[in-house]
């Protein structure tokens, strides 16, 4: 086992983990509040990056203008998604919201494919990007931005959850739904705020992916399942567990394909399969997640 590339792998897993953390925290928030699995969460991320692309590349706005436009459009889309595709069904069987969010994910994918075409696109910064070498580690400025901004945004999320009235209501709901409703907290209003915050975080992660690598309409499914993997690792509905699970997922993915195990290395194509294997193993061995200690939830 050669360990020369270990620092580079650690940095790569930090980058991947930051993206997953932003993408999956919204899913965990929604699950904690509404107890539904949003199969369209990764697609919201995909719609986010395409909206940014539309403002930036088609309409020719600067980054700030595109960001404002993207935030407005994504907040509106998230509002409509929740109002039409989720909330009318939460009173009935849990299966209904699975079916409707799956339908929503297909609608997003088909719409974006028809509007923008299926081929791979990427966002360009407009200036030449050089990767920086630091003690044998190569890193691009955009990757530094990803790591730092995701930490900053997760800090903002922590502030939102622990120090604002909405966060207090959210925590009350995830602790005991009936008690929270009993003292007059509106589940609907809280869920709108939470869902829109989650969608905006996912859209930000999407834009970062668009800048760092590329984007295509089918990327939604991959990120949905990775967000699920992170959430299963951390325990369903546990936000900070999910964030930790995201970084762990990035670490496992990068180490498993980067290191060679006694002369045998795993082909890079299997990188994505690790997220799914993790889900199956965690569900088999510890279904309540790594960081939840309560008795089996499933």
């Amino acid at each position: 086992m050669s360990l020369d590339i270990l620092p580079q792998l650690l940095i790569n897993s930090l980058i991947a983990g930051s993206i997953y953390a932003l993408a999956s925290s919204g899913l965990a928030l929604t699950y904690g509040l509404l107890k539904i699995l949003n199969f369209a969460h990764g697609h919201l991320m995909m719609v986010g990056v395409y909206m940014f692309f539309m403002f930036n590349d088609w309409f020719g706005y600067e980054v700030i203008g595109s960001a404002i436009g993207c935030i407005a459009v994504i907040a509106f889309i998230a509002y409509l998604s929740l109002k039409i595709f989720v909330l009318p069904f939460t009173r009935y069987s849990y299966v209904l919201s699975f079916v409707t969010t799956l339908a929503l994910s297909t609608i997003f994918e088909a719409w974006i494919s028809m509007q923008f075409g299926v081929n791979v696109k990427s966002l360009t910064t407009g200036f030449q990007v050089h990767s920086i070498e630091f003690m044998g580690i190569f890193i691009t400025p955009i990757q530094i931005i990803i790591i730092l901004s995701s930490i900053a945004l997760l800090g903002c999320l922590a502030f939102f959850i622990h120090y604002t009235p909405y966060g207090r209501r959210l925590r009350a709901f995830s602790q005991n739904e009936y008690a929270a409703q009993g003292i007059g907290v509106s589940k609907t209003n809280t869920s709108y705020v939470v869902f829109i915050v989650g969608a905006l975080l996912a859209a930000y992660a999407g834009v970062m992916v668009g800048y760092e690598t590329n984007m295509q309409p089918t990327m939604g499914n991959a990120y949905t399942i990775k967000a699920f993997a992170a959430m299963v690792l951390g325990g369903l509905g546990n936000v900070w567990g999910t964030v930790a699970g995201s970084y762990l997922l990035g670490l496992v993915e990068n180490l498993s394909i980067g290191l060679d195990f006694w002369g045998y290395s795993i082909p890079a194509g299997y990188k994505d399969a690790f997220a799914f294997m993790i889900i199956l193993f965690v569900l088999l061995l510890r279904p309540q997640g790594l960081f939840n200690s309560k008795s089996r939830a499933a």
Binding site: K35, L37, F98, V232, D272, I279, L283
Partner: peptide, 13 residues
């Protein structure tokens, strides 16, 4: 929920 995630993961594997 766990069942749906588990089978989805299996199909992706």
């Amino acid at each position: 929920d766990y069942f749906a995630i588990g089978t989805l993961a299996f199909s992706f594997v």
